[in-house]
């Protein structure tokens, strides 16, 4: 199963980027092969709807789980529509977050945690 994590860099030692739509990179981690791929987030400079574009990116990569800091309403809706589970409040390195996910320590989002455009918590 593929997991997409919003990241500030392209390594497992990179820090999680708390923003979903406007994060620097996505780390797509495969929990079966334990391999990962870093893709740069084209949505970062989007005029609007960055969350939706970023969601399209990870959905097209076949991710089934998204891990990030905060998620806005549009991105939340499309990910929910695509049956993707979203975990929020993640912090630390990508490796830490993957471990916390395996240990079931991450919090699953059942609603958006920021307003459109990522302007903080609602």
């Amino acid at each position: 199963m593929k997991i997409a994590i919003s990241s500030t860099g392209n390594e497992l030692s990179s820090q999680v980027d708390p923003r979903f739509g406007r994060c620097q990179e996505f780390i797509i981690f495969d929990s079966e092969t334990l391999e990962f791929e870093a893709i740069s987030n084209e949505a970062i400079n989007a005029a609007g709807g960055a969350g939706i574009k970023a969601a399209q990116l990870v959905v097209d990569k076949g991710a089934e789980v998204v891990i990030t800091g905060n998620i806005g309403p549009n991105a939340f809706n499309v990910l929910a529509g695509a049956d993707i589970r979203v975990f929020v409040g993640a912090a630390g390195t990508i490796q830490n977050v993957i471990d916390s996910y395996k240990d079931g320590k991450l919090q699953e989002a059942n609603q958006p945690t920021s307003s459109p455009g990522g302007r903080g918590a609602v």
């Binding site: 989007a46 609007g48 709807g49 960055a50 939706i52 399209q56 499309v78 529509g81």
Partner: peptide, 23 residues
């Protein structure tokens, strides 16, 4: 359609295209 929409108002879900009118 989602690819050409520079405002990202369209999203291709598994079974349909989702449209975000505000965008």
């Amino acid at each position: 359609c989602a690819e050409v929409c520079v405002y990202n108002a369209l999203f291709i879900a598994k079974d349909r295209v989702m449209f975000f009118p505000q965008l």
